[in-house]
Computed example of a mutant assay.
Amino acid sequence: MKFKFSPLVFYSGFIMVAVAALIIYFSVSGSNNANPDHSTMNQMPDDDLHRSFKNPDMHGKDGMKLLPDVMAKLNELKAGIEKNPNDTLKMRELADFYFQSHKPDEALMYYNMILDKNPKRTDILHNITNLYYVQKDLEKAEQVTRQIISIDKDDVYAHYNLGAIFATVGKKDEARKIWLEILNKYPNNPLKNLISESLNQIK
């Protein structure tokens, strides 16, 4: 059985921002390979940011191709952070921009700048989990997910993600245990249907 995962995303302004939880979805194919399939993450979305990459007339730094309004927004965010190094809102927006621009190192730098100011920002830690997941680094994704749980033991999304990571690497018993514990402890949680579907797929 092969599991295919894709993080939830939503659109915010000119960029596509990762939701503050991985929410890994399962889809079944006729394979016994338990490695994650990231093909959906490699497809370029059809939004202003990603359409600008396809425009051969708009070139930014590092080979990026950017529409003028996107480049202007990028420069505005950088200037705002330089002017006010405590503006975590702009840091978050810029980090999300880099994440969706497929520049994980830059994204991680700005996410960590936010965590330097408040290491208990679980929303930022969730995005870092997403980042490591997209990079197929499940070991680091697990480490950050456990960090979230250490901060907020009732974070259902983090618990679900931990189970999903276990399922990805073939640890079905561990995944099943975590998901059943969520259903028992939080019977009305917003992921109950997803958890039930996931449990059915690892039988």
Rank of each mutant, 00 (worst) to 15 (best):
K103M: 15
E76K: 10
M71K: 15
F5G: 02
M41D: 08
T168M: 08
P36R: 00
S27T: 14
A18K: 12
D152F: 13
D173Q: 14
K185N: 12
N33E: 12
G170L: 08
Y160K: 02
A79C: 04
G13Q: 00
Y98S: 01
S101D: 03
K61G: 07
G170Y: 08
N200A: 11
N32W: 10
R92A: 10
E139R: 08
A95E: 02
H126V: 03
Y11H: 13
I165R: 04
K140T: 11
S29K: 15
Q135S: 12
Q43M: 15
F99G: 04
I15N: 11
N161D: 06
R146H: 09
F166M: 15
N86A: 10
L194D: 14
N193M: 06
N112W: 02
H38P: 00
K140Y: 06
L94Q: 02
Y133N: 01
Q143W: 05
L89Y: 07
A107T: 09
P187E: 06
L199K: 00
A164H: 02
E82T: 09
N130K: 04
M64W: 09
G170S: 06
G63S: 09
D37I: 11
L194W: 10
H102W: 14
N130I: 04
L180C: 11
A167D: 09
G163W: 03
M41S: 14
E76V: 08
K83E: 10
M113F: 07
N118R: 00
F10E: 12
T145A: 10
R51A: 00
L77M: 13
L180N: 15
D48S: 10
Q135E: 13
D173A: 12
I15K: 15
R121T: 03
P119W: 10
L66F: 01
S27W: 11
N55V: 04
L49V: 09
Y132R: 03
Y160D: 03
N112M: 05
S27I: 11
